[in-house]
Every structure is written in C-alpha cells, then in structure tokens.
Amino acid sequence: MAASAGVAAAVLLGLWLKVEEARAPQDPPPVALGQPVDLGRVELTPLSLALAPPEQQGEPARLLMQVRLLNLTGESQTAVFGFPPHPPELASGGVVWPEPEVTLDRDGEMLAQLHPRLAERVTLAWQLPPDWRPGPVSLTFHRQIFKLRDNLYGMSNWLLFQPTARMTMLPEGAP
C-alpha cells in the first residue's frame, strides 16, 4: 500500500514537473563577449565575433569567433565539445548553420585535444551561406551533464546536453 502510494506520488510529481517545464520554457541565460560559459568538460570564453574574407579565392566569406578554452576535467580531452560533438550552434534568421571548423590560434592546426590547466585560444570558422543577409546571429552553447555515478553501472559518465547560454550579437564588420 505504502509502496503503491509512493510510486503514484513520484509519477504525479514527475508529470507535474514536465507540465511546468512545458508551460514556461526556459531560454538559456544570455551571455556577452568576455563572459565564461561552462560546457561541462571545458570552459569557453567568447572573445570576438567578426566577418572575415574567404580563405581562398572562390570560397565564401567566413564568420570567425575567437574563444578561449580551458579544460576543467582531470585528464586530456579529445572530445572538447563533448561526444557526440556539440560545438556552439550558430543560427541566423532561424536557420542553424553547419558545424564550424576549430583551429588553434597558436599554429593554425585543427584542435585535436585540450590538456588540463593549459588554456588555448582557438578560432571557430563558419562559411557564410550564399543567401545570408547581414544581421544579428545567435550562438547557443550546450553543456554536457556529468554524473559521477550513472544509473546503469554506477560509473562516471557524460550524458545529455542542455542549452546553457545564448549570445546574440551583430558580427563585427557587418554593414
């Protein structure tokens, strides 16, 4: 009897929480340049967002975001933006752009890993879609949830992603 009441109460509570969540969908908090964002494995600080000319003749122009990345975990990370990778999601006019290329500012090589306590400056580069009209863009940052003991094996695990912050701004160099 008591167990049935407990299960029923848990189901009702869960349902009520879901209804509350659906009634008032929470937008991730806004962030600005220079404000650090916790993505789970790394802390990302956006430093600049600017339009840039194409890398080579015949290619589209690019949108570049410079960020500072710091590994917050106790081991080197190859999945800097989590797994599967969730780099900052750039959207303009409601359209989400493909994932950016991430290169080290230090030597222009692709970012392959990030070591603890060694912050790196990197550039995220998106190619501008041909039909893009200059205007504000929004960047959504996702945080991956870490559980020290997951529900399956009791092992530490990286689980779901949640939007944790959003930055809306007009890129530098936009008319």
């Binding site: 106790g74 081991e75 392959a112 890993q113 070591h115 603890p116």
Partner: peptide, 11 residues
C-alpha cells in the same frame, strides 16, 4: 604532481 592525467600530445 596534481594527479591530473596528460595524454600523449597529438601535436
């Protein structure tokens, strides 16, 4: 020394 683990450098 802090116990953190550093993998072989991919660079």
């Amino acid at each position: 020394a802090s116990g953190r683990r550093y993998a072989l450098s991919r660079r």
